[in-house]
Design a protein around this nucleic acid. Structure first.
Lengths: 136, 136
DNA sequence: GTACGTGCAAAGGTTTTGCATTACA
DNA sequence: TGTAATGCAAAACCTTTGCACGTAC
């Protein structure tokens, strides 16, 4: 098992204890946390942590391509340490975000691919997740 | 040509002059404006308009399914009066949002459609629009 | 040693809310 | 006439920024 220190060593980022704690929290995390989710959890073990540090660390990781900033939740940004190609489902009731595997998406008319430079594509699904569906 | 008054008459919304002006601005508008865009334009002809009125009108229209709230722009919400099925492209430089026709999207593993209740799906593309691509 | 990160507080931007007044239906 | 919308101001959030201090490299 690779430690986050080894994993993020050569990015040109200083690995402070705060950052290592944030990276530990994010590593393999499938919950798509908000900045505040990260802050609340990491500050349990690191009480001096500041929310501003969480934001700047997320910004630095995003610039290095190590985290995705998701805009699927209308209320706040959510973060995803899994940067491989996949899509997302958000439950409109509990706001859980769940990974959806990406199949071969061919949904872009060829006439458009000539004029545009497409850098990312992302499918966003919304509805009721299995838990909320059962309660309804 | 149908006036917006005829178009929105039977929604149970009071058609005040402010709302009619907002509806006129939105009708057929392909620019995916923000609340402030709407406010700035409509208040030219309606100087007493309040930004709060724009927000509450957009909220009422959204509840009636007459406008979509887009979260594709990380900076603010954008609104779309075209509620038929289509997708969006956002230019990461100029923030223009452009409609992309939806093809038959079959990108959801069947195992998942059984457990989830999918209400909406939306493909979000980002990159450089034709104008910005030419400048680069 | 130096450039970069931290933490605090304050500011910025977007969106919502409370409330008295106004006006549609 | 009664219910709902308006407009103003203030508040509520989320996120960013300035700055003095501290620390990884």
């Amino acid at each position: 098992m690779m430690t986050v220190i080894a994993k993020y060593r050569n990015l040109g980022l200083k690995l402070t204890p705060q950052r290592i704690a944030i990276l530990d929290y994010l590593d393999g995390n499938k919950r798509h946390p908000s900045a505040e989710d990260i802050y609340l959890d990491v500050s349990k073990k690191f009480p001096t942590l500041s929310l501003a540090t969480v934001y700047t660390t997320l910004g630095a990781l995003r610039e290095k391509g190590k985290v995705l900033e998701l805009t699927i939740d209308p209320d706040k940004k959510r973060y995803d340490p899994e940067t491989g190609k996949h899509n997302h489902f958000i439950c409109i009731l509990c706001k859980r975000i769940i990974d959806i595997p990406a199949t071969n998406l061919i949904d872009f008319p060829e006439a458009i691919t000539q004029d545009y430079c497409i850098i990312t594509s992302h499918v966003e699904y919304s509805g009721h997740c299995p838990e909320c569906k059962n309660i309804l």
